[in-house]
C-alpha cells in the first residue's frame, strides 16, 4: 500500500490564556517601565564602569527576577547560578591565602577558616542583599513581591537583591571571563567604602551580641 503523504492540521491552536494589558504588566508599582532604558540601567552601568561593561540586554536580564511577568521575560536565574559559584570560589581562595599563624596550615594556606561563619557569610545572601541596598544597586529591579508592605527581608527584597548581585558577577564572568570577574569582586565588593567584609562582620557581631 502506498504511503499517503499530506499535510494538515491535526488539532490544536495555542490556547491563549486570559491576558492582562501588557503595558500594566510590564510596569512596576513605582512607575518604571520594563526595558533597557537609561534610567533603568544607570545604577548598574555606573557601578560596572567601562572596565566591566556588559551589553544593555544582559544588564536588563541582571535586574529582572523570575517573579516578574511570570518568567516570560529573560531573567537572571542562570546568571546568578554562575555568579554565586564564581563568588564562592573567589572568596574561599581569598580567606585561605593570607598570612597565617596556624601551624596546621597546608602549604601556607589556613584551611581552618573554611566553614566558619565569616567564611560562609562573606558570600551569603544577607551580605549581598545589604550590599545592594547600601550601594542602591537594587533601586530598580523588575520583580514581584507577594507583599511589598513588609520589611526588606520579609518582603523577599533581600533575597531578590542578593540574587541580582550574584547575577551581576555572573554577567561579568560571561562577558569578560573568570579572571576579570575575580578582579571585579576584589575591586568592587571587597574594596571601597562599602564592602562585603564590613557588612558580614558587622552582621555577625550583632548576631553574637
Amino acid at each position: 500500500m502506498a504511503l499517503r503523504i499530506f499535510t494538515r492540521s491535526v488539532f490544536m491552536q495555542t490556547r491563549m490564556p486570559i491576558r492582562k494589558d501588557p503595558s500594566k504588566v510590564l510596569q512596576l508599582a513605582t512607575g518604571e517601565k520594563y526595558g533597557a532604558t537609561e534610567s533603568n540601567l544607570s545604577s548598574i552601568k555606573l557601578f560596572l564602569a567601562d572596565k566591566y561593561a556588559i551589553p544593555d540586554d544582559l544588564a536588563l536580564q541582571v535586574i529582572t527576577h523570575k517573579s516578574f511577568t511570570n518568567g516570560l521575560k529573560p531573567y537572571n536565574e542562570k546568571l546568578s547560578a554562575m555568579g554565586s559559584k564564581v563568588l564562592n570560589l573567589f572568596l574561599a581562595k581569598f580567606v585561605v591565602e593570607g598570612a597565617t599563624t596556624n601551624d596546621l596550615a597546608v602549604n601556607g594556606k589556613n584551611l581552618d577558616v573554611l566553614g566558619t561563619p565569616i567564611a560562609k557569610e562573606l558570600g551569603g545572601r544577607m551580605a549581598l542583599g545589604l550590599f545592594a541596598q547600601s550601594t542602591k544597586l537594587n533601586n530598580t529591579m523588575f520583580w514581584k513581591s507577594y507583599n511589598s508592605l513588609l520589611s526588606f527581608q520579609e518582603s523577599g527584597e533581600l533575597k531578590v537583591s542578593a540574587q541580582m548581585m550574584y547575577a551581576l558577577v555572573g554577567a561579568v564572568t560571561f562577558i569578560h571571563g573568570k579572571k576579570a570577574a575575580e578582579a571585579f569582586v576584589r575591586e568592587k565588593l571587597l574594596e571601597g567604602p562599602v564592602t562585603l567584609e564590613g557588612i558580614a562582620s558587622e552582621f555577625l557581631e550583632q548576631n553574637q551580641a
Partner: peptide, 30 residues
Amino acid sequence: ITVASYNTAQLDTSLGPKYDSITDYGSYRN
C-alpha cells in the same frame, strides 16, 4: 509572618575554634 528568618551560619564549637578577630582569617585555628 510566613517568611522564615535568615539562618545565620553558626560556629562549630565541637572543633574548639579560636581566633583573634572575626576578619583575621589567618588567626583561625581549630
